[in-house]
Amino acid sequence: MRGDGLDGSLPPGGGAGAPRRPAGALEAEVLAVLRAAGMPLTAGQVRQQLAAGQQAELSYSTVVTIVTRLHAKGLLAREQAGRGFAYTPIDEAGVAAGRMRQVLEAGRNRDAVLSRFASGLSGRDARLLRALLAAEPGDPGGEQE
């Protein structure tokens, strides 16, 4: 499995004086913070929450590493928030689906089995699509946002 290779690559970013903990424990703490939050949090917010919970202070880069790894493992979903990402935990069925997608994508195999409803668009295709849908009278769902 690909994800396993990442374990142990945690940068020695735990703040000065912080006792070293196994990477798994940090991941569990971050997950717990995100589950408790009930809303998407950025890495910075996760770090604040961890500090507020009187956990040893972690460097920003450590938190980013942890959430990125959790995302790669399919345990967190993320969305664009400003220049970074905000993360939300994924529940069990979602974790399974995320892992599966990860596995399929990892081997360049996804085209073999997964048919996505609609892929992302290049800039030109997006303009073309907007033009097509705008030309349609009574379009129910082309451009609402």
Binding site: F117, P140, Q144
Partner: peptide, 8 residues
């Protein structure tokens, strides 16, 4: 419209 909406 649904395909377009999702793709965008």
């Amino acid at each position: 419209a649904t395909i377009g909406h999702v793709a965008l």
